[in-house]
Design a protein around this nucleic acid. Structure first.
Length: 493
RNA sequence: GGCGAGGUAGCAAAGUGGUAAUGCACUGGUCUGCAAAACCGGUAUGCGCGGGUUCAAUUCCCGCCCUCGCCUCCA
């Protein structure tokens, strides 16, 4: 199968994601800072990366996925103190919550998930190399800074010129920063931060005195540990391009002989109701917030992938409703493609999957079948996906095929092929299908059930007027009646 | 000011040098006592504005307007 073509931030071109070692695509994603629940904006990035990984794997290339946990910085220290917990207890709690959310969103867990605190020695070692090489220097207070002027390629990723780095919005604000007085240059950044009273118990020894590592350093050190000096791809939110990724490149390239990441994937931001979403503004939603409003994680995932990852996406409640309907449509199509065993030798498999679905209580797992290895009739959707992860385009192609195929008229063999293809695509997108609304067993109160029965009786007696009055009564109470030839169903409005 | 993303139907969102996918919503029909579901249709002479290139531009070029993001620690 052809490889995924992905836009590369550094060269600004679409390039194939071919593994450097010819076998496994090794990539790193900047993970969360665990000082609170991640919001859907954070998850947009992780979901996009998850789709990337799934597509690469679906195309036949294994991956090595590394994503860090940032468990030491100003915010984790500050908030752990507020919570009266040790830094470790505090960050582990939020890490756990993060994992729960990731699982709900159907994110494949990274193969390696290193924490910054667990890699202090590696970070110190990298700083030592940088100091020895003349790329870093210790300040009077025991902090260590990277000398940006020592790395000629600085700014290459973000395309910022030297001059521009010194200008900018933060110029005025940083004048009051105490770092200001210890750094040689305004653009130099901290590799090691000297211990401060407010750090409490959170400090580590180093050749330059007690302190803690700077944020940018952890990624460089852990990448070196798990992916080496050269690796395939690095990914994160667009906001990390500068300075975070720029600094990572500087640190890594100046302390090793490698070229660091060979491909950069950046995910655009999520907006909410047309505006920026951020922790500082406070207009953010977590999965829990949305669950309280009745939306499932799968619906959230659908919304998060409904725009191309490189363009900002506006999130609204309406988009969640829209996602719910679209998922229903897919679930119904899937059901329509469900047929009996196509041939005797497959009957065992079919039985298993049927049982699994019942026990799954609502969630079907596409691609559980071993046949779902090719897109089948959805080849166009698959090709669209391979072109820089065009998920919206692929979704459109999937629906287009479903609209054209006369699902009910397909032969069992055709239906199975179509279903396998659909599952292949859904698996690449990481979408699980919800239970079909009608099937969702809701508890109907006895009085409602009685009214509904009354209406059914009236209907059987062809007393349309009475039946309609009862229906309206039920609707007013929030219940809808659906009739079939055999009987009726009551569902919540 | 610099860098970047984007302006496509009511909402969302793809896409292409040859005349606009798809999802939601809306809507007509079939079916149904009526609905719902299902199925079959419809809904942008138009793709921010103004020029230009071309047989042909929403798609290429130039100018302009607007929105959003980043510019030292926010995915």
């Amino acid at each position: 199968m052809p490889a995924l073509k992905l836009h590369d931030t550094l060269t600004r071109t679409d390039r194939e994601t071919t593994p450097l070692d010819g076998k496994t695509l090794r990539f790193y994603c900047c993970g969360p800072t665990v000082y609170g629940p991640a919001h859907i904006g954070n998850f947009r990035t992780f979901v996009a990366q998850d789709v990337m990984r799934r597509v690469v794997e679906a195309s036949g290339t294994p991956t090595l996925h590394v994503r860090n946990i940032t468990d030491v910085d100003d915010k984790t220290i500050r908030d752990s103190q507020k919570a009266g917990q040790s830094l470790l207890d505090f960050t582990q709690g939020w890490t756990q919550k993060f994992h729960i959310d990731c699982a709900a969103l159907n994110l494949l867990p990274p193969h390696i998930e290193p924490s910054a605190v667990a890699h202090i020695p590696q970070q110190v070692a990298m700083i030592e190399k940088l100091v020895a090489g003349g790329h870093a220097y210790a300040a009077a207070d025991g902090s260590v800074y990277f000398r940006v002027s020592s790395f000629k390629d600085y700014g290459k990723l973000s395309h910022l010129e030297d001059r521009e780095l010194r200008l900018g919005a933060s110029e005025a604000a940083s004048a009051t920063d105490r770092d200001e007085y210890t750094k040689d240059s305004l653009t130099d950044f901290a590799l090691w931060k000297a211990r401060k009273p407010e750090d409490g118990e959170n400090f580590w020894p180093s050749p330059w005195g007690e302190g803690r590592p700077g944020w940018h350093l952890e990624c460089s050190a852990m990448i070196l540990e798990y992916l080496g000096e050269d690796f395939d791809l690095h990914s994160g939110g667009v906001d990390l391009i500068f300075p975070h990724h720029e600094n990572e490149i500087a640190q890594s390239c100046c302390s090793t002989h490698g070229h660091f990441a060979h491909h950069w994937m950046h995910v655009a931001h999520l907006m909410v109701d047309g505006g920026k979403m951020s922790k500082s503004i406070g207009n953010l939603y977590t999965l829990e917030d949305l669950a309280k409003r009745g939306y499932s994680a799968v619906e959230v995932r659908y919304v998060l992938i409904s725009g191309h990852y490189s363009a900002t996406l506006n999130f609204t409640m309406h988009s969640l409703d829209s996602a719910r309907q679209a998922l229903q449509k897919l679930a119904k199509a899937d059901k329509a493609l469900e047929r009996g065993p196509p041939s005797p030798q497959h009957s065992a498999d079919s039985d298993n999957s049927a049982t699994g679905q019942k026990e799954g209580a609502g969630l079907r797992s596409p691609a559980a079948g071993s046949e779902a290895r090719a897109p089948g009739p959805f080849a166009e959707a698959w090709e669209t996906l391979l072109h820089d992860l065009n998920v919206p385009g692929a979704m459109g192609a999937i629906f287009g095929v479903l609209n054209k195929l006369k699902l009910a008229a397909l032969s069992p063999e055709e239906a199975t092929a179509a279903r396998n293809g659909l599952h292949f695509m859904l698996n690449a997108l990481g979408l699980t299908l919800p239970a079909i609304a009608d099937e969702a067993a809701t508890d109907v109160p006895a009085d409602i059930q009685a009214l509904a029965q009354q209406r059914w009786d009236a209907k059987q007696a062809k007393d349309w007027a009475a039946a309609d009055i009862l229906r309206k009564q039920l609707e007013a109470s929030g219940w809808l009646i659906k009739d079939s030839k055999e009987g009726f169903t009551v569902i919540a409005k």
